[in-house]
Simulated assay, not measured.
Amino acid sequence: MKLIGSLTSPYVRKVRVVLAEKKLDCPLVLEDVWSADTSIARSNPLGKVPCLVLEGGEALYDSRVIVEYLDTLSPVGRLIPVPGRERAQVKTWEALADGAMDAGVLARLEATWPGRAEGERSPAWVERQLGKARAALATMERGLQHGQPWLCGAHLSLADIAAGCAVAWLEFRLPEHAWRDGHPHLDALMQRLMQRPGFAETRPPQ
């Protein structure tokens, strides 16, 4: 089994953190999906990472599918509860975090993609996407305001991993927006997460 991805993708980082938490060995094969000679379409016709290639050659994508599969491979550190309300809560937090990343990526592409001339960029579109990211972070902050260490109670779950990857990516790619300001509980969550090897070792290169 191998993971195709990049060192800066927050979606790839989510998978890598899950691999570390589950203590699963899986080599990372670096791929630049923006390169003219990228080969990612051989494994994922959508041309996106992460993509998990299984031993028989079958490929899994996107990150939500991959982490759910990985959580079944080892009993160590269960990250997604069994079907029921708790599972739905964890998956909803993951969807919120992924949505914040989606919005941040769209905002950054609109502002920086070299395929678009300066006069073709839409500040209103950028602001709309950043508004979604801000709303997601505010929701995460409220979810932590009652003093519990993790989003879904006393134990780390996929909810925290997804949220941490989202916040870290927004801080990495859009530092001018100071995401930690006004989010003390979310900041504390990030500090807890960075004490875990899976997060510390997957920090994107500066």
Rank of each mutant, 00 (worst) to 15 (best):
G5S: 07
P10Q: 03
Y11E: 03
R16V: 09
A20L: 06
K23N: 11
L28W: 10
V29E: 15
V29K: 08
V33R: 03
S35W: 10
S35Q: 11
T38F: 02
I40Q: 04
G47I: 09
P50G: 06
C51T: 15
G57P: 04
E58Y: 04
A59Q: 12
L60N: 06
D62W: 06
S63C: 09
I66P: 00
T72V: 02
T72F: 00
V76D: 11
V76T: 10
I80A: 05
V82Q: 09
P83F: 13
R85V: 15
A95C: 09
L96M: 13
G99F: 11
V105W: 12
V105D: 14
L106F: 13
R108Q: 08
E110V: 11
A117H: 02
A124T: 11
V126D: 07
G131S: 03
L137A: 13
M140D: 06
E141I: 05
G143V: 09
G143L: 10
L144T: 05
P149V: 00
A154M: 00
D160G: 05
I161P: 01
A163E: 01
E171N: 02
F172H: 13
H177A: 14
H177T: 10
A178K: 11
W179N: 03
R180E: 09
L189F: 12
Q195G: 02
A200Y: 04
